[in-house]
Structure formats: structure tokens, C-alpha cells
């Protein structure tokens, strides 16, 4: 593999998804910091030349630029059956959750950004309800997984789906959701934290 490069914003949870996965895989990437808040560098001509739609992060892998967390995670998981199952039914399950992370789960990210960077929280907005609804879908799934003896979103071990979903659950306190409302998510967050190579980001405590 040629040198990995990650265009990265320390405070952005999409970038954290990829940093976390790199660390769990034991890979190092050269990091290029993108100053999003307050710099707005994601819209600068220089960055748009790398990421035409302004998506963060950008991973360069085997000389190829991949823009956005979902794509970067997939590119890193390729050829690693433990993280991206080859059996089609399990692959389909992982694909389902990656799509969920890139779709309905965005509501949690938008809530968090609004609360951290946009002033006050926005009470019972449509966005907040959608964000809670998305976390509940994850909670309900993990409840059923646990009843059948599983601890992860798909199969017997962590997959790239768990990594794509993790920050939304781990960071929900930033927009006012308590872990106590999601006991299954809480146990799963703990399991992810226990993986060898786990790293945190600002907002996810480091127990040292």
C-alpha cells in the first residue's frame, strides 16, 4: 500500500470515524488538518480541488482520493473479511447499516453541530425527534441482537458497520441525550471502547 493520507478535522465526527478505523487496523496515515471551524477551509478552492463537493474526510489510498466517511471506511475495509464480510447476507447487513449511518443517522450529527456550534439546542424540533428516532432504531436492533447472543450490529465480531455507527451513540450527550435512555447502546459503546487500538475524539472521554 502506498502512503495513506487523511484530510482531517479533529472536531468532526466523520473524520473521527476514519481515524478510529485506521487505529483499529493499526494503520498510520499522514494527516492534513482542514480548519473547518472557524476557518471554513472546507469551502476553500484548495480543498475543493481535493474534494469537489467539500466532503470531509478525504482519504488517499493507493493513489486514489475517496471523499466522505462511508467511502473511506469501505475502501479501508476492502479485503478484510473480519471487518467487511464476504458472505452476501452479512455483506448486505453491513451495507444496510452503512447506508443508515449516511442517511437517517445524520440527524444526530446535525443536532450535535447545532448544539455545539450553532448556539442553543433546539428543543423538540423535527430534527431532534428524527435524531432520537435514529438512535432508537440502533437501540432496538442491539436489543434483539443481545437476545440472540450477539453483541455487535452484524455477526459475531465488530465490522465496519459498528465503526460507522459508533460516534453518533458515543457523542449523543453533546445534544442532550442521556446514555441511560439507551441501555443496549451503552453496553455496545463500552464494547467498542474495549477494542484494541481504540482512540477517542474531543467529547468522548478517555479513561486512561
Amino acid at each position: 500500500m502506498s502512503e495513506l493520507v487523511l484530510h482531517d478535522d479533529e472536531l468532526d465526527e466523520d473524520c473521527y470515524r476514519v481515524r478510529l478505523f485506521l487505529s483499529l487496523l493499526g494503520l498510520e496515515a499522514r494527516r492534513v488538518a482542514v480548519d473547518v471551524v472557524p476557518g471554513g477551509a472546507q469551502d476553500s478552492p484548495g480543498f475543493r480541488a481535493v474534494s469537489p463537493a467539500g466532503l470531509l474526510p478525504v482519504l488517499r489510498i493507493d493513489g486514489q482520493m475517496v471523499c466522505g466517511a462511508g467511502g473511506a471506511l469501505l475502501a479501508l475495509a476492502h479485503g478484510r473479511p473480519a471487518w467487511l464480510p464476504e458472505v452476501r447476507a452479512d455483506f448486505a447487513r453491513v451495507a444496510h447499516w452503512l447506508q443508515f449511518a449516511a442517511g437517517p443517522l445524520r440527524a444526530t450529527l446535525l443536532m450535535r453541530r447545532a448544539c455545539l456550534f450553532g448556539g442553543a439546542g433546539d428543543g423538540q424540533s423535527a430534527r431532534r425527534r428524527a435524531a432520537v428516532g435514529a438512535l432508537r432504531i440502533m437501540e432496538d436492533h442491539l436489543v434483539h441482537r443481545r437476545l440472540e447472543g450477539g453483541a455487535w450490529f452484524v455477526g459475531d465480531g465488530p465490522t465496519v458497520a459498528d465503526i460507522a455507527l459508533f460516534p453518533a451513540a458515543a457523542l449523543c450527550r453533546d445534544w442532550g441525550e442521556e446514555y441511560s435512555a439507551y441501555p443496549a447502546l451503552r453496553r455496545w459503546v463500552r464494547a467498542v471502547r474495549g477494542l484494541p487500538g481504540f482512540v477517542t475524539m474531543p467529547g468522548i472521554p478517555d479513561y486512561g
Binding site: P104, R127, R129, A130
Partner: peptide, 9 residues
């Protein structure tokens, strides 16, 4: 109180 997931802005 209804909490429906979906795509929001």
C-alpha cells in the same frame, strides 16, 4: 410525542 427517523436538514 412521535420520534420518527428519516432524512432531515
Amino acid at each position: 410525542q412521535v420520534f420518527l427517523a428519516g432524512v432531515v436538514a
